[in-house]
Design a protein around this nucleic acid. Structure first.
Lengths: 214, 214
DNA sequence: GCGTTTTGTTAACGGTGTTAAGTTAACGAC
DNA sequence: GTCGTTAACTTAACACCGTTAACAAAACGC
């Protein structure tokens, strides 16, 4: 029988303190620019102690990532109360963008960083469960609107519609995060860009309400 | 008078050999994963020799980046022959996406990597010159289509339209590059996604041709 | 031939993520 | 109470990184 660890709760507390320190430094300076020794210094332990709780730096990132994905899914769930399916999708896009810009470093970690061979269940997130998987939520809403006949008749693939909506919103957000202050492009206000994007995609893909008389 | 360097041409050749080696390794393994020593090994010189031609690693990246921007602008110029402004914009989006997916590591370098304080003229690219600046090209085409009355009347800001078009195409490309093989999302074919994106944005923003009779 | 400059080298510095080996403290068994 | 076991943690070290300092050799103007 493996000897019970001294104090399970204390162990979890230390783990959380490492995560908190890492999150602060990542958000402030980015992932690559944050060293294990810096994190350890903030926690008040040696750098190697972190390896007692996380296999390596990537594992530490992944743990942070998992909570970020849950946070995003949780925030997105607030849109469920909106009854009209198209209005709901519209608001989902705007809400997603707000999340992205409020936590740019998290967002960069989640959707702008390549995860080599990151298996689906490695994050501890239930894929397809709308409570945990924001994409599943988007897909569900699109499928619902599609079933209600709110999309153009030739758009019979909810996955394609969902992925295009996602890409549009992601494009505005990721460009803003990466090049928003590049001093090169004369950017229009972010709200105008995200608004025009969501409005355009929804307008183009929606079934026309009624044909006006010429 | 400063003594003329021994052989200007030979120096440029060495410089080019360094750039070529760096490009190969960056495209193959990414920027961060490529070390100066690796590049030097491929060139056949010591790592410190690179510093005789480039101030630091970032400077080496920037030099590569500059040629990539020119290559993109050059490839985009092929669309100038298309006469119809809207058809031209449509094809510009598809061509841009082809460039992005053909050179994913270049694209990542150009539009998915934050450049701390990278001044506009630091790249040696003439900002606003459509022959060198792909965004200026896009803006010009949008402005032309706008002047020809091909956009909705309420879309009176070509910059906002251009930035939204760019963001849409960039969103599809960057998502594909970052998460295209994540094994999580059940992606639809890239061609379908980029096609629906460009078509939707153009359709939504275009002035309606004529009102069909009910 | 001499001094200077260019072009390259090797050695080294301070940093990184990570592992190996050693230390301290808490526990169950006798 | 002591003994072995084990968890939790430390310091030392490894191999690597980008970069700089110090030095060597070859080519140039005079």
């Amino acid at each position: 029988m493996p000897p019970k660890q001294r104090n399970e709760q204390e162990r979890q507390e230390t783990r959380t303190r490492i995560l908190d320190a890492a999150r602060i430094l990542f958000v402030e300076h980015g992932i690559e620019a944050t060293s294990m020794r810096e994190i350890a210094g903030r926690v008040g332990c040696s750098a190697t102690a972190i390896y007692l709780y996380f296999r390596d730096k990537r594992d530490l990132f992944r743990a942070l990532c998992a909570t970020d994905f849950l946070a995003l899914a949780e925030e997105m769930r607030q849109m469920e109360r909106i009854v009209d399916p198209m209005e709901r999708l519209h608001r989902l896009g705007i809400g997603y963008a707000r999340f992205a810009l409020s936590h740019p470093n998290h967002y960069r970690l989640m959707f702008m960083t390549r995860w080599p061979q990151l298996a689906a269940d490695e994050l501890g997130i239930e894929q397809g469960n709308p409570e945990q998987d924001a994409y599943a939520q988007l897909y569900g809403m699109v499928a619902e609107a599609h079933a209600a006949g709110r999309f153009r008749a030739d758009l019979d693939d909810p996955a394609l519609v969902a992925q295009t909506l996602w890409a549009g919103v992601h494009g505005v957000c990721s460009l803003e995060i990466t090049l928003g202050e590049d001093g090169w492009t004369d950017w229009r206000p972010f709200e105008a860009r995200i608004g025009l994007m969501v409005e355009s995609l929804m307008r183009a893909m929606a079934r026309l309400p009624e044909v006006p008389h010429g």
